[in-house]
């Protein structure tokens, strides 16, 4: 049985660490990008951003002031038991988010969409976002906290319902145009991680794009060879745009293109794109059945 206070503690620390540390795979990818860029502005954008991440790590500052949308992606096992049941996960996430906001690890950013009123704690209908999947066979609870910046979500979200006749050419045209538009003037804070969802329903398609952008370590390819081929072709195409870090002249508009697929209606070809910014914030808290918490920035 995992206690309620353990869950809140794990969520709070995961979102705090997410806001203050750059994940190691993202840092390695940015360092590799820095080696490739030659334009002085492109180089400077990356040098400054890596220094900024160092400063936040040392001084408990923030990797980016826009801590954005608070989200928790949770994995549970068949034998996982929570004090109070799984229904408490939402209030645990609210408590953890409000605490991290009060302590200035998260900026109070969530507002009502119509009144624009800001409750000051990042908690309201639908936020923080939590998603639970039961895909483990043990008694653990794994929480990935992802504070996602506005730039990448606002300027990096695209959806198009295409048709079977639009074919792979349509998918590729849509994605490369999305990358060009998203990276214009550094809107999504490139080098971005581009998540692409293909198939499913409209909401599943977008959800796949988001998870492909946020939850996959850099360099990991899709197991479906067709999806992996698209990832490679689109990544290579993005490097020919002439767009680099923060929209400067360069090569690295993106760090990775991650595709995911789902079966879809025989009449449909839905495609969604969701971008993650260069800091790629996410941190993981793993709670075992005895309530021990282990934190890591490394994805499997």
């Amino acid at each position: 049985m995992i206690r309620r206070e353990t869950i809140v503690e794990a969520m709070y620390n995961a979102i705090r660490l997410g806001a203050t540390k750059m994940p190691p795979d993202i840092r390695r990818a940015l360092q590799n990008a820095l080696k490739e860029e030659t334009d002085p502005m492109a180089v400077k954008h990356l040098e400054v951003s890596l220094q900024n991440a160092d400063m936040s790590e040392k001084g408990n500052g923030l990797v980016c002031a826009d801590t954005g949308f608070p989200m928790y992606f949770i994995h549970a096992g068949a034998k996982t038991q929570l004090e109070g049941g799984f229904g408490i996960l939402k209030e645990c996430a609210e408590e953890a988010t409000a605490r991290a906001t009060a302590e200035c690890f998260l900026r109070p950013t969530m507002v009502h969409p119509l009144t624009r009123k800001n409750p000051g704690n990042n908690v309201g209908p639908g936020m923080p976002k939590i998603e639970v999947v039961f895909d483990r066979d043990d008694d653990s609870l794994e929480i990935l906290a992802a504070p996602k910046g506005g730039g990448s979500e606002i300027f990096g979200t695209f959806y198009r319902m295409m048709f079977p006749a639009d074919g792979e050419a349509g998918i590729k045209k849509f994605v490369i145009e999305c990358i060009k538009d998203a990276c214009y003037a550094g809107k999504v804070c490139p080098p971005a991680i581009i998540g692409v969802g293909i198939g499913g329903t409209a909401d599943l398609c977008m959800s796949m794009a988001k998870k492909a952008a946020l939850l996959r370590p850099i360099g990991k390819k899709h197991t479906d060879p067709e999806a992996a081929r698209l990832e490679k072709e689109l990544y290579e195409a993005s490097r020919k745009l002439g767009i680099g870090p923060m929209g400067s002249r360069g090569i690295n508009a993106v760090l990775a293109v991650n595709v995911d697929v789902a079966v879809t209606h025989t009449a449909a070809l839905p495609v969604a794109v969701n971008a993650q910014c260069m800091v790629g914030r996410r941190w993981i808290a793993k709670i075992d059945g005895n309530g021990n918490i282990d934190y890591t920035g490394e994805m499997e």
Partner: peptide, 29 residues
């Protein structure tokens, strides 16, 4: 600064689309 860069990126699109196997003049249904 960025509008100049955008024009450069736009000018590269036909070649990129060709490399991706997108037919010239392609349009969605």
């Amino acid at each position: 600064y960025f509008e100049d860069l955008a024009k450069e990126a736009e000018s590269k699109m036909p070649e990129i689309e060709k490399d991706l196997g997108i037919p010239a003049g392609y349009d969605y249904t």
